[in-house]
Design a protein around this nucleic acid. Structure first.
Lengths: 229, 229
DNA sequence: GGTAACAAACAGACTGGTCGGTATAAATAA
DNA sequence: TTATTTATACCGACCAGTCTGTTTGTTACC
């Protein structure tokens, strides 16, 4: 090969993702993308056959990255505790940390953006989005089932929709953070999901402390007994 | 006045909303809107000065309807119980019912659609969206504060983000329902929000029942003591 | 010199928006 | 009662600009 085009390709994809999250896919014209990327139309169509091809490449890249991110956080959590409930809570806490790092260009989710323009994309592209969602749900759902085998929930819950709640909160929080221009909103919602799981499954809950004032305290009141399975 | 144009205007707005939720705003061309509405371009520009004017009219209509919907459900809930916690839980249950009714054309939220194309709209239009969000959050947040004065939460929570969770879940659930083509997903997430609030605030929780199998039971284990204020 | 990586001009379809004109019904005048 | 005016509601061809995608040519590197 002569010159190395991977940098150009990445520049185009990064620029496209940014423009798409600001204006949506159809308003993200190729001209605006190449202008932001600092390349020409020739370079664009060298790397991508069509605009739809770019869309597919973008979701595939994100899908790969998100799947890897989830595996990383799950493995980190599994290394930190042998209890499924704790693993899940830790994993969510890790996401909370990761999301707290996200700063100014208020985050957004390409999947959500595409879903609200879903008729523009072919079945393959939307299939990737769907698969990301089901994979996430099944991965979290599997953990949840392990939790439920050990800790009966305080209220009857459906595992599938409870796993989906994590996805739902993440997607909804992105929307909120965009409208409020506050990246911190995402982490806050992850925290609530962690709270919900604690309240549902943790074997011992603190009795409600009278003055609801001490809200600054750390909340790690749970030292879950590692069950002798 | 000569003929009555309100029906035409409504037809245009309904068609536009449907097309926008399928393809996004910028791909919802005026031609496609008038084709679905069964009117001509002349009729469109008689009722709306520009396409942006249509966008503003749409969010304003939704904002009004949603505010009214919330007031209705809050009032119904307040008529059914004098306890703030019960009122909130009932109100959420009412939304759960309402969302369960939503059928085939998998629902979506115009606000979310616009937020993911936010750079296309002027400050006025996005301001309406922002105001809908803050109004909702404040209305639920106010109820939550009343709850917190009576029932100390089992875990330290931030009222503002806890109120926002309802919005976040609703928005995220719309996304999930669209990608899954399952309108029932929305109601399921409302149920989880109700669970979370119960677990956080309800003074008496059932001890986790051993077999986690009986998931079909009704969950109204709470007969909240009406506090003698 | 051969090929990967780009540049730039161009074509054709589609976009939002305009504009002259028409149909209908109510208000007014004869 | 009938004729005329007037305002609302609507029609559809058309324009200027933007869109994606093509084509042809140039540059850099082995």
């Amino acid at each position: 090969m002569a010159r190395d085009g991977t940098a150009t390709r990445k520049a185009i994809m990064d620029a496209a993702q940014a423009v798409i999250l600001e204006t949506g896919f159809s308003a993200a014209s190729i001209d605006s993308v190449i202008a932001r990327a600092g390349v020409t139309k020739g370079a664009f169509f060298y790397h991508f056959k069509t605009k739809a091809d770019l869309a597919l490449a973008l979701v595939q890249r994100d899908a790969k990255a998100d799947a890897a991110h989830l595996e990383t956080n799950l493995q980190r959590a599994e290394a930190l505790s042998r209890d499924p409930l704790q693993q899940l809570l830790i994993c969510i806490g890790l996401y909370e940390e990761d999301m707290a790092k996200l700063a100014a260009p208020y985050p957004g989710c390409l999947y959500a953006s595409f879903i609200y323009e879903s008729q523009l994309f072919d079945a393959t592209t939307m299939g990737v989005v769907r698969q990301v969602f089901t994979h996430w749900t099944q991965r979290i759902g599997g953990k949840l089932e392990a939790v439920m085998r050990l800790y009966p929930p305080r209220l009857p819950v459906d595992v599938k929709t409870l796993a989906e709640t994590s996805l739902v909160l993440a997607e909804g929080a992105f929307i909120l953070s965009k409208v409020q221009r506050d990246a911190g909103a995402v982490a806050a919602q992850w925290r609530h999901y962690r709270n919900y799981l604690e309240l549902l499954f943790a074997p011992h809950l603190p009795e409600p402390s009278r003055p609801a004032a001490d809200a600054g305290v750390t909340h790690n009141t749970l030292d879950a007994a590692l069950p002798a399975q």
